[in-house]
Design a protein around this nucleic acid. Sequence first.
DNA 1: CGGACAGTTTGCGATAGCGCAAAACGGGCC
DNA 2: GGCCCGTTTTGCGCTATCGCAAACTGTCCG
Lengths: 236, 236
Amino acid sequence: MAKVDTSLVAHLPLFAGVKPEELDDVLREARSARYPKNTAIFEQGADAQSFFLLLHGHVRAAKTTPTGEQIVVRYVAPGETFGLAMAIGAAHYPATAIAVDDSVVLIWPTSAWPRLIERFPALATNTMQTVGKRLQESHTRILEMSTQQVEQRVAHALLRLANQSGKKLDHGIEIDFPISRQDIAQMTGTTLHTVSRILSGWESQGLVESGRQRIILREPHRIVVLAERNQDSGAA
Amino acid sequence: MAKVDTSLVAHLPLFAGVKPEELDDVLREARSARYPKNTAIFEQGADAQSFFLLLHGHVRAAKTTPTGEQIVVRYVAPGETFGLAMAIGAAHYPATAIAVDDSVVLIWPTSAWPRLIERFPALATNTMQTVGKRLQESHTRILEMSTQQVEQRVAHALLRLANQSGKKLDHGIEIDFPISRQDIAQMTGTTLHTVSRILSGWESQGLVESGRQRIILREPHRIVVLAERNQDSGAA
DNA sequence: CGGACAGTTTGCGATAGCGCAAAACGGGCC
DNA sequence: GGCCCGTTTTGCGCTATCGCAAACTGTCCG
């Protein structure tokens, strides 16, 4: 089993308040694994046997309806935890996790959780805050879906992605993993057609540069304006 | 300060795993208060100085945009906690809480939380599960908003309310607190006009009986059908 | 008992966004 | 180098839902 250097993960929010010497004990309970691009890490509805910490790569968490429609719950960036079903008392994963890029994760067995938080209460506190933050983001998303039109929601979504996983280029910010129009549609509650139209429009205005599963924000500032504008403002 | 009988709250999920004799210690740190109908318990953005447990009545948690639009985050039923900002590491309340009926709550100072969970770790675990459940509900709501049309969403919302706070009558289930079309609109991401039209339609089909801030589901089963139907099914 | 008002109903255009379908595109693979 | 497939683009008609406006109604208050 690969040994993980504590210094690589010590600064993560999950481990805030855990002493360096203790950290080693926590990591000892984990194993690491690599998931190639486009492979599933776990499936919605499966037994929640493990929880995860993403070290490298990017993971998409998506939820599927009985009738097959999907939404993207979130994109997981390196340093974030996912698959926390057990912490919230769920026996099964409520969503599917897929590596969208070659990804490396740490994996703890669910069964280790009670022992871990007993020994390191900070883990429980930190996880609580993480889940709480996600709840708030979730509410924000509901608020946006309720009050904004599609173009604004797409703008917000891209800005968040850029913020979370943007690679700075001299001519803009590139979203650092493969993402399709369909994915963005599933993040914003619309269709890939509409997303495509919007991005085409932006592209012709020089706001973005985009291609197959690739998006570069050329004018983040002007996209912020789009995201925040009230529905009345008129354009030429 | 009013003394709260432990036996009244011992069975609540919040206190699962807390011994009866310990429970008294937890309650000793709280005070109780009564909020008349339509009064605010806390405002979005205010310092999160307390957290709450609802004993009687009903509370609406709502989030407001900078531009004044609102959504209903949830309705709190007796026995549920709310205002947990501190547990999730937020210094300010992310939403406003309003008593929709005369309500009685237990109030703990935020500052007591660290001490409480240290002494009674079960509180932390239980709260974690509560927040986790809310996160999942939130995702479900996003899924619905993304994939279903308004009528189905309204059906789901009413069924949930009936389930959570329904009073059984011989001729149906009544939602046990005052709720307006506007409120339902803010739960489902639509307008009060559309909700009104939908309820009028249902009323003329005998599915519901409704009036000023009052809704009775007469035919819950048939409403379930509405909630679950795929968008293609046609009616006579 | 008569307002006054908050909540509700309803009509009628306007339209954002969907859904379908077809074509263009771009990359990787053999 | 050429083929194949998943992704993206775009046109076009359709409609669910909004937005505005006006009328209506049940309740509470004086």
